[in-house]
Write a protein that binds this DNA or RNA. Sequence first.
DNA 1: ACCTTTCATAAGGAAATAGTTATATATAGT
DNA 2: ACTATATATAACTATTTCCTTATGAAAGGT
Lengths: 115, 115
Amino acid sequence: MQTKERTFEEAATLFKLMGDKTRLKMLAILYKDECCVCELVEIFQMSQPSISQHLRKLKNAHVVNERRRGQWIYYSLNREHPFYEQLLDLLNTLPDTQPLLNDLQVAGKRVVCCD
Amino acid sequence: MQTKERTFEEAATLFKLMGDKTRLKMLAILYKDECCVCELVEIFQMSQPSISQHLRKLKNAHVVNERRRGQWIYYSLNREHPFYEQLLDLLNTLPDTQPLLNDLQVAGKRVVCCD
DNA sequence: ACCTTTCATAAGGAAATAGTTATATATAGT
DNA sequence: ACTATATATAACTATTTCCTTATGAAAGGT
């Protein structure tokens, strides 16, 4: 799975981001589909600021993108990230998070927004 | 690179260990060759307790093995770790650490020990 | 204009982290 | 037995991390 090389600094920064259970699961969820903040709040059952702060860290590292759609701000994996492919490989080794999104849908908590 | 699945907890624990620059570099070094503590102290120019504490964390997570040879205790990657192969893939994307070991050799600081 | 909803940011606190120095333990050599 | 070397552990400190609550800003609906 040889990809581009990088410094220990860069790599450690990325691993540190993935070293938090919440953020890691968050990435696994965004791998399935982009999500807005309130959906993640619902999934994680954590305070909204906490979710926002995790997202900000991921955004600052260019691991995720944000885009506003009306009231909602959607986050998604950044496909332009230099180690995006490698990230996908890692996320593939994690439990499937699709059920979480399905549960959200069933509970009517999935935000539907057509822009 | 599909390997075994694991919980977010397990994965996050491993990534957290790799999220520290010193430990990550340490793993990259052990990927090249087993090392004793004093060699790592020499390479990192850090206090011996600091090195030992990092190694203990890696050992507690079964990422590395230790084995005593006389006065020295050698650490090496644990090939039995459930995600050893994946770890190798990741370490392969990092800068080569062989020069560090060569420098150590040249400086006469490489511990030679035949057991 | 007003109110509601969504999200971000600020401020603060508890816990974890990574380093230090000091000390203890284990092995080797004399 | 004594000394030297290698390593581990304990105790401490400074910094970082992750959460909380409180507040502010942006957009939408009436």
